[in-house]
Every structure is written in structure tokens, then in C-alpha cells.
Design a protein around this nucleic acid. Structure first.
Length: 591
RNA sequence: GGGGUCGUAGUUAAGUUGGUUAUAACGCCGGCCUGUCACGCCGGAGGGCGUGGGUUCAAGUCCCAUCGGCCCCGCCA
């Protein structure tokens, strides 16, 4: 009699068995994926993390084993001992990786029974609230397990790369100080200091800079970050960064090092070869050509500025927009006869999301255009537009006239929408782009002041420093984002290591000396004790994993994710706490 | 804060212009079956339509509110 677990240990994973093990005795442990009970012979598909193998219970194996096998139901936990054998002639199952073989069971132990699971583990689409409530069962699905396995390999390859390149992993605190600027903080009340709060880090930004001041020279960390903002398909309130910082370097050094990381990761995880160096695009070019700072460059359909051509147009709307400082731009969908009149009208609603008040379109014919605005345009405008866009018969042109911001947003997103709709995107392509020369700060209408584009410690281009007081919006930052297939997977900058420059930036951000002192005093102090030139970058591990696995939601690459309301349907977090807990913290719920 | 969409047996879905006891498939339970692999065959149980109001002779079907899932805008240095 086998003594599973203690003496008769597992010898193989189900999914790893193959024909070379024929006639070997094996011990397997796993879950009953499916059973086919023929009354006589009983087949069970036994599943573990590596895959599925068919195990066979023959009546002539003995009454004990066969009798026990009749009790097996979905998801029972089984241990079996038996012989691998090539399946009888014509009984192969090509759909199964192990379909050439099967295991003839001589001993069986039902290690645990299972309630009937609430859903099946086939490819069927189960609504997400059910999946998330029973996440531990959802995670049994091979598709999700594959994602988490890849995520683990990604983290391992990252650590290997940084260790090989002389980086040191240092842990930084989760209980930190709330800082202004940036995302909303998750707060943690202090019991010992009543009425005071820690904040969970939005990133270890300041700590990694301080580690450079300390002289560690090269730091990395795979670390959780927390931001209390609304969720999206690619955004969770807690997410993981690959965080990096280096001393005595320029942008070039950082970008080179990170390109090496990308190459190493994609080789290790997907066996794909990335060609270096990666292409670059300035922020200004990205916005003007693609309307976004995270352009998907897997396809063309670039935005073309028509303002100069139509500023004196017969079409009044164009003239008015141009006169009031707006712009008129267009994109061209090549040979887009697939788009019906109804589609075109629907797109008007689509750009409205981004603030566009209208969307003009024109179907290019041999001699003229089919377009609501054709009759308003002068002949030379029509030819000018056609030439600027290189438009041919069968193409459709889309125009938006509005403020530069609205035009970029709406055409940038319309471009993406059409790219998907017209199947212009190669799903296997890996299109990396560095975005460089970000503006250091942008004016916020809501805050009525300039705000950091990146963060307040980002170094400006030193030659732009004179603009800091005269035209702050024009100052370029030594910041860079890495974009992959239209998704921002990382971003970073050279930091300010000089107290003077840091003060100038704070003052441009309307952060008074006292405030800056209060919020970042320790950093300002540190900058006065021999801070080396330094800079770094952080990657979004979750988003990288999404792209590598083809996951459509960030929830599919996180073991226990939160819903759009930032709740965990399995544990029921967040939840109320007892009055005693609140009193201990001197907290009172006011609404 | 706002826009959109969905919520009907365990699961996935159908449910006409409001009209008898709310359908189907899979799953589940029982029986039969020694080569299946989405096993097959026979039989059976299971929901009152997210929740709460309202309109109506009559409400999954219409109206209002509310809860929850998803997508998006704002937000995310």
C-alpha cells in the first residue's frame, strides 16, 4: 500500500510526462479535471500546474482502487501510482500535450474531496465578479497560471540582469511621509502619534535618490507602489514597479542600460530578439505626429497639420478656429471603404469624448470628394489638403478643428480606434519608442499654476534655465518615457543634484521655501552633502507582463486584483472596522 | 464627479409590441455502460429574473431609485 506524501513522493508533474517514460512507474498528484466513467473502465484527466494527463482505472486493477475511483468528482485532489504506457493504437489525443500516453493506475488515494466548483475551468467566459469572488479557483485556470509564471520569469530575469550589472537591491519603507504633488496618497493612521498619518509610497522616488547620495551608485528594487486614483483596464491602486537609479551618468547611460534590460527580458521570457538601439521621438514630435505621448507606432496614419492651408478657407468654421489660435488637423484612413456612413457618424460621438465639437470627413473620389464640407472648400484647398495627406481615391480623411489640445487628443485616439477597426495593427510586433524632451511643467487650469510633468526633482535642460522665469512651459526636462505598442511601460529622468536649481524649480511650481522645507527638507539637506549627479527610471512590471502575455486587463496578470471600485470581492476589503479600532487611532467617521 | 454597458437556475445565454405553470445548453444528482477524451444513453432536481419602490387587471419586460461587474472621460507628479 502506497504511503503518499511521506514515503511515496510525487515523481513527476502530470503535464511533463511523455512517451520516453513509457513503462516507468510514476506517482502523480493533482486535481480531477474531468472524469469519464464507463461503468467498467474509468478515465480521469488529472491536472497539475504543468498540464493534464489521462489516468486510467481498470476494473482488473482490483476492487479497492476501482471502487474508490467511482467516487471521484470534479476537482477532487488525487494521488495516484501507476505505470506510464503508450496508448493503444488509434487512441491518441492530439489535442493533449500528453495525448500519446496514459497512466494505468495501480493505487489511488483521494486526498481531499471538493464541492462542485461554481464554474468550469474551460475556456468559457465567466463574468468577472464570479471569477474574482472565487479567485483561488479562477487561478486554477491554465491561462491565468501561464501569466503568473511569465511574470515570475520576468522578475527573475530582471534581478539577474541588475545583479550582473552591479546593481544592489535595497528595500525602502512603505510607511512614509505624505507628499504634495502627484497622485492621491493612501493614508495610514498612526496609533502612537494621534492624529498623524503615514502615506504609502506612490513610488520610492526620494529614497532612491537618497541612496545615491549615500553612494550606492546603482540601485534597483522590484517594489509595490500605491496610488489612490480611479482604476482603468491597465491601472490598479497597488501595482509593481521595477525601480532603478544610477549615479554619475547621463540620459544616454540610463537609456542604454534599460535597453539592455529590455533585450534580456524579452530573450529570457519570450525568446524574442530586440534590436538595439531603440528608436526615439521627442515629446513635441510624438504629439504632433500621433497626438499622444504614448504613441502606438505599429502603424502609420500620422496626423497632418492643415491650419496653414485652410486658415482662409471658404469653410467658416476652419477660418474661425484658426483665427482664435486653434488648429485644423487631419488623419487619413487608407482604402477605408469598409467604413459605412453609420460608422462615420458614430466616430463623431467617439471624438466628442475628448472634447471635439465635431468631426468632418471626406471620402476621396476620382474627381471630387463625398463630404459634408466639400461644397465650402475652394478647389485649391481641396488639392492642397489632398497633397498634404497624399490622399488617393478610396481614402477617407477625418478633420478636427479645435484647440491644439483637443485636436491632438481626439485625432490621437481616433487614430488608435481606426487602427484597431481597420486591422492595421500587427499583434506580434514589438514597437518600442523612447519619448524624450518632455516639458518640465505644464500649466494647470484647475490649480492655476504650473505643475511638474514628471516630478519636482526632474532636471531641466540647463540651457533652458533662463526660460524658467519668463516662459516656464517652454523649459524642457531631462525626462524620458519608454513606450511599447502604445503603452507607457516606464519613465524616468535625470534628477536635480544642485540645491540652487531645485529651489528655482520649486519656485516655478509656486512651492514656497517654507512649504518645500516642510515637505522635502530632508532631500534639500541631502543635496547639500555632496549629492552626485544621478538619475533613474521605473518600469511598470504589470503593464510589461500584460504586453508579454497579451492580457487585455491588468487584473489578468495580478494574482489578487481589485475591482474598479478598488474592492477585493474575495476578502471583501475594504471593510468597516470596530469602534475600538477607531478609538485606538483617535479616528471618527464623519460621513 | 460624469458618460456608456451589463446583471434571468451553479455557469453561459434566450426571453417578441407587458399576457397562462420563465426557456436552452453545459454543470449537478440517480441509473446503465470496459477505450473515452466536450464519452454516450435514460431519468431527475434546481431559479421567479441584483435590490427597493411605482405604473398596470397583469411587470425579466415600462418608470424611478439603489447596489454591483466592466469600458471610458476627468484624475493618475
Amino acid at each position: 500500500m502506497a504511503d503518499f506524501l511521506t514515503k511515496d513522493k510525487r515523481t513527476h508533474y502530470c503535464g511533463n510526462l511523455d512517451i520516453s517514460m513509457a513503462s516507468q512507474e510514476v506517482i502523480l498528484m493533482g486535481w480531477a479535471h474531468r472524469r469519464r466513467d464507463h461503468g467498467g473502465v474509468i478515465f480521469v484527466d488529472l491536472r497539475d500546474r504543468e498540464g493534464i494527463v489521462q489516468v486510467v482505472f481498470n476494473p482488473d486493477a482490483g476492487e479497492d482502487v476501482h471502487g474508490e475511483a467511482h467516487k471521484i468528482r470534479s476537482e477532487f485532489v488525487l494521488a495516484v501510482k501507476g505505470k506510464v504506457r503508450k496508448r493503444p493504437e488509434g487512441m491518441d489525443n492530439p489535442a493533449l500535450k500528453t495525448g500519446e500516453i496514459e497512466v494505468i493506475v495501480s493505487e489511488l488515494e483521494i486526498m481531499n474531496e471538493s464541492k462542485t466548483p461554481p464554474f468550469s475551468f474551460d475556456d468559457e467566459e465567466i463574468s468577472e465578479n464570479v471569477r474574482l469572488k472565487y479567485r483561488y479557483l479562477d487561478l486554477r485556470r491554465p491561462a491565468i497560471q501561464r501569466n503568473l509564471f511569465l511574470r515570475s520569469r520576468l522578475a527573475a530575469a530582471t534581478r539577474r540582469y541588475f545583479e550582473e550589472n552591479g546593481f544592489i537591491e535595497v528595500e525602502t519603507p512603505f510607511l512614509g511621509k505624505s507628499t504634495p504633488e502627484g497622485a492621491r496618497d493612501y493614508l495610514v493612521p498612526s496609533r502612537i502619534s494621534k492624529g498623524m498619518f503615514y502615506a504609502l509610497p506612490q513610488s520610492p522616488q526620494i529614497f532612491k535618490q537618497l541612496l545615491m547620495v549615500s553612494g550606492f551608485d546603482r540601485y534597483y528594487q522590484i517594489v509595490k507602489c500605491f496610488r489612490d486614483e480611479d482604476l482603468r483596464a491597465d491601472r490598479q491602486p497597488e501595482f509593481t514597479q521595477i525601480d532603478v537609479e544610477m549615479s554619475f551618468i547621463t540620459e544616454e547611460d540610463i537609456m542604454n542600460m534599460m535597453e539592455g534590460l529590455m533585450k534580456a527580458i524579452f530573450k529570457a521570457c519570450l525568446d524574442k530578439d530586440i534590436v538595439l538601439p531603440l528608436p526615439r521621438l521627442t515629446y513635441a514630435d510624438a504629439i504632433s505626429r500621433y497626438g499622444k505621448d504614448n504613441p502606438d507606432v505599429r502603424f502609420g496614419m500620422e496626423i497632418v497639420d492643415l491650419t496653414a492651408i485652410v486658415k482662409d478657407s471658404g469653410f467658416k468654421l476652419f477660418t474661425e478656429v484658426a483665427a482664435s489660435g486653434g488648429v485644423i488637423k487631419a488623419i487619413k484612413a487608407e482604402q477605408a471603404s469598409a467604413l459605412s456612413r453609420k460608422d462615420l457618424d458614430g466616430l463623431k460621438d467617439f471624438v466628442a469624448i475628448y472634447g471635439a465639437k465635431g468631426l468632418a470627413w471626406a471620402k476621396v473620389n476620382a474627381a471630387d470628394w463625398t463630404s459634408p464640407i466639400f461644397k465650402f472648400l475652394k478647389p485649391e484647398e481641396v488639392t492642397g489638403i489632398a497633397k498634404a495627406l497624399n490622399a488617393k481615391e478610396g481614402d477617407i480623411i477625418f478633420f478636427v478643428a479645435d484647440t491644439p489640445r483637443v485636436v491632438s487628443d481626439s485625432l490621437g485616439n481616433l487614430r488608435l480606434n481606426l487602427g484597431k477597426k481597420l486591422n492595421l495593427i500587427d499583434p506580434d510586433a514589438l514597437a518600442f519608442t523612447w519619448i524624450t524632451e518632455f516639458p518640465l511643467m505644464e500649466y494647470s487650469e484647475t490649480e492655476k499654476r504650473f505643475m511638474s510633468t514628471h516630478h519636482p526633482f526632474t532636471s531641466p535642460f540647463l540651457e533652458d534655465l533662463p526660460l524658467m522665469t519668463t516662459d516656464p512651459g517652454k523649459v524642457r526636462a531631462k525626462a524620458y518615457d519608454l513606450v511599447l505598442n502604445g503603452s507607457e511601460i516606464g519613465g524616468g529622468s535625470i534628477r536635480i543634484h544642485n540645491k540652487e536649481v531645485q529651489s528655482q524649480v520649486f519656485s516655478a511650481l509656486k512651492l514656497s521655501n517654507e512649504e518645500a522645507r516642510l515637505k522635502f527638507g530632508f532631500l534639500l539637506d541631502a543635496l547639500e552633502y555632496g549629492a552626485p549627479p544621478h538619475g533613474g527610471l521605473a518600469f511598470g512590471l504589470d503593464r510589461l507582463t500584460m504586453i508579454m502575455t497579451g492580457a487585455e486587463s491588468i487584473r489578468d496578470v495580478i494574482a489578487f486584483p481589485k475591482t474598479q471600485k478598488a474592492a477585493c470581492l474575495m476578502t471583501d476589503a475594504p471593510s468597516k472596522v470596530s469602534i475600538e479600532q477607531l478609538m485606538e487611532l483617535s479616528l471618527k467617521i464623519v460621513s
